[in-house]
Amino acid sequence: MIYPMKLTVNDELIELEVPAHRTLLEVLRNDLGLKGTKEGCGAGECGACTVLLDDEPVNACLILALQADGKRVTTIEGLSKGSNLHAIQEAFIRHGAIQCGFCTPGMILSAKALLERTPNPTEKEVRRSLVGNFCRCTGYQKIVEAILSLAKRGDG
């Protein structure tokens, strides 16, 4: 059975029809071609599929698309405007926080969610915010450094 739904993806309202068992991840990747959102485990353990749902980080592999009906989704593709990168993206590049890059989209979105709630995080807070984003290449250090470089020191 096919169900109609609406989704605002990266500021664009999209109407689509999906079967009930389709996950948000499958809709993003297969129906909308937004392949920046990755599948690493399918069970909510690796965080490669992290997207922001109404500005909050969630595992797109653990949500039915229909559960997101009427909500706002931000994927990695929605972060940069044209050739202007988001500050977090710039920081990841500058600090060498990227190796294979498969975890990077989810990692950046988790960082965004953190910095929006906690503009001046401690290192511990940064690390805690990333526990759901698995990275096997970098050992996390440069990722943590990149995010900390954006902490708004002194004004918090």
């Binding site: 980080p57 969630v58 595992n59 969610a113």
Partner: peptide, 9 residues
């Protein structure tokens, strides 16, 4: 519990 992602769901 789990991760921020899990705690948001």
């Amino acid at each position: 519990i789990g991760s921020p992602q899990i705690r948001h769901l």
